[in-house]
Nucleic acid binder design. Structure first.
Lengths: 234, 234
DNA sequence: TCAAAAGTGTTCAACGTACACCCATGA
DNA sequence: TCATGGGTGTACGTTGAACACTTTTGA
């Protein structure tokens, strides 16, 4: 009951950071610098301070450990088994972040020892962090099915092959590129630029950019144009 | 960082209980029996014990305050503003429950002072509990769009008008009953019984029951037959 | 007999899916 | 010149949406 004294339980945050590099989905991990479990791979974690909200804590902790700030962060789930942390009773509130790898490349590699791993080849992580990652992958699938959050993973301008690779990676499928581009363009949310990306091919692929105004207005109607429930892993 | 000492933050649970009575969606509330905020309406809450998981705590707290056990409970979100609890720094991990009101009616009214309120007419609640309820309503919409969890709200046998009322209530729309019943029956998941419910009308409506085997098998493919993204409130 | 809710079918437009070839370019 | 990836169109079946009348029966 609320009027009894609260037992002591520590409150931590762990951040699951997804990135997209133009062709693959990646996950950001750090090597733990202290005992226990020193040198094992881990998510970015830390304790919530007494005078900060848990949302604020997630941003602070991510920035401390990776230098990343201003990224899209959303609460995922709170993990609270009794023995999940081998050290002391700790619950962990997890957040996931979506970023465009290229945009933050320099910030990251300069001072921090974080590394990108392909989402389908994650090493063994400390505690229950692998479970957290699995849940985050599923949540991303759900979220992306109904919300255009995934544009957070893309640079300002991007090509159709890039955005399709992103969806292919998130849902672990291969969409038909003819149907995919038709559906995507039919939203009217993409503006074609007079400029090509020549990185990916000799012919080059046209860049597109988000029509921000329409994007705000139509936040709702847009998706599930792309994804049907068949694509979700239950 | 993980190696610093954790500050003291209390960890509480709050449960948002949705019920369906055959025609309306309801929310279960209790009147707080202690200060501060004595006698104000509130969700069912309590502290997590040091030696129990947060999932276990949610079940225990719900049972303590309402007598309900064995109900569908799912974690919703963790609320963690600094001043959300006016008493001491407390984060609240919220869970939502789905129950068939009739099934638990006796359990509830006997010993507990909990009351059902229509979801569209909730009183002012303590702390940030109204916000929690709003989030739970949205989550239920999302969840029900892709998962058949809503059968948790129905009795063993139910009529087509009842299940449609439920969807109408969750999405705050009025589905066309011809289209609705065709879609629902096309899943092949409902078994028509040779028995009618005469409560709702003179003619009576046939009872249906879930084909449990098929239900297990097809957990995934089923929904979004009913709901399209247009129905979601963003 | 009538009021009230249950139950049922058809038509049309929109959408999803499958599928194959040409284009532009740099090496 | 050729290998590589980019870009486009059509045809068909399925699905979603709009729509109105008949049935049953208790009061």
């Amino acid at each position: 009951m609320r009027n009894k004294k609260a037992p002591h339980i520590s409150v931590a945050i762990d951040c699951i950071v997804f990135g997209f590099d133009g062709s693959d989905m990646k996950l950001l991990l750090i090597q733990r610098g202290f005992d226990p479990e020193r040198n094992k791979w881990s998510l970015m974690g830390g304790y919530v301070d007494e005078d900060e909200s848990v949302d604020a804590a997630s941003g602070r902790i991510l920035e401390n450990l990776t230098g990343l700030s201003g990224v899209y962060l959303e609460q995922l789930h709170t993990f609270g088994s009794v023995k999940r942390d081998t050290n002391e009773r700790t619950i962990s509130i997890t957040y996931f972040a979506l970023i465009d790898i290229a945009k933050y490349k320099q910030q990251l590699s300069a001072d921090y020892h974080a590394e990108w791993f392909p989402v389908n080849n994650i090493p063994k992580l400390i505690f229950d962090h692998n479970e957290m990652v699995e849940m985050a992958k599923k949540r991303l699938q759900y979220k992306a099915a109904l919300h255009p959050v995934v544009f957070e993973l893309l640079p300002e301008k991007f090509t159709l092959p890039q955005i399709q690779s992103m969806y292919d990676a998130i849902y672990e499928v291969n969409f038909d590129k003819r149907n995919f581009s038709r559906k995507l363009l039919s939203t009217g949310l993409l503006i074609k630029l007079n400029e090509k990306d020549k990185m990916g091919s000799k012919k080059g692929a046209f860049y597109y950019t988000l029509d921000k105004d329409k994007y705000e207005e139509n936040l709702f109607k847009i998706f599930s144009l792309i994804i049907t429930p068949d694509h979700l892993q239950f």
